[in-house]
Amino acid sequence: MREDKICAATAAPNFSFTQARVAVAQICQSIGYKGAERPALEALTDIATRYLKAIAKLSAESANSSGRTESNLFDIAAAIEDLASVQGFDGSWRVRSRSVWRSAAIRDLMKCVKYMDQIPFAQPSPPRVSCSGRGRVLSIRDNSLWYNEGKLKHVPRWLPAVEVEVLGEEEEKRRGEVKWEEGFEREEAANLGSSEMKKLKRECYDEDVEQVLVKRGKVRFKIGNVGMFKGNGENNGGGEEEDGGC
């Protein structure tokens, strides 16, 4: 309890909490509130996140006690019933409802879905990016596909999603990096160049002389306030320009 209090007091407002606060504010507005005090809104958001975590924890525990890793509808229904037991609901005297449909807590949710106005979140959520910012974190669905049908069959499914680096070709080009296996192909392609180039190369290697194949452009130098000797040996002084190929 003490740790919880400390966490609540010192919880840094991270991105997920800020998003949840916006959602809670939207719910309050839909009910009829015109505004909210900041501490009250943050307290309600904290309760919303704790409620979410409590459902998740209870569902996961329920699934684990049944020998499963993935929760199903019955686990969630049991968790919702447990959390609703504080206020009480119809049929809460049973330890577990006979069926999910008979559960009053789930029936309330059905009514909610049927009659409640849909208020979408104010902003579209950004795609999830990994901590390093280089790769893409797979969703749980992708993860199961990856583990079942992909190369990582040997990895247990309950492990968290792996980070997959998705580097575009453009980025590779920008970096000037070449994959090791592609390096051979490019080399081969270069070897199959024109016969003239081959001849030229052979000549170069035979003579053992480093020749510049491409003619370089002219470079101009400007040297100011320093005396310059021209080709004829006269010292003019001042800024002079000299053209020449290097």
Binding site: S16, A20, K53, K57, A60, S125
Partner: peptide, 21 residues
């Protein structure tokens, strides 16, 4: 379409060890 976005719910669920595709 719930007001709380799916990504946010998934984040908090995954934080507490909940797995469901």
């Amino acid at each position: 379409t719930p007001t709380i976005p799916d990504e946010l719910v998934e984040h908090y669920l995954a934080k507490s060890g909940f797995q469901c595709p």
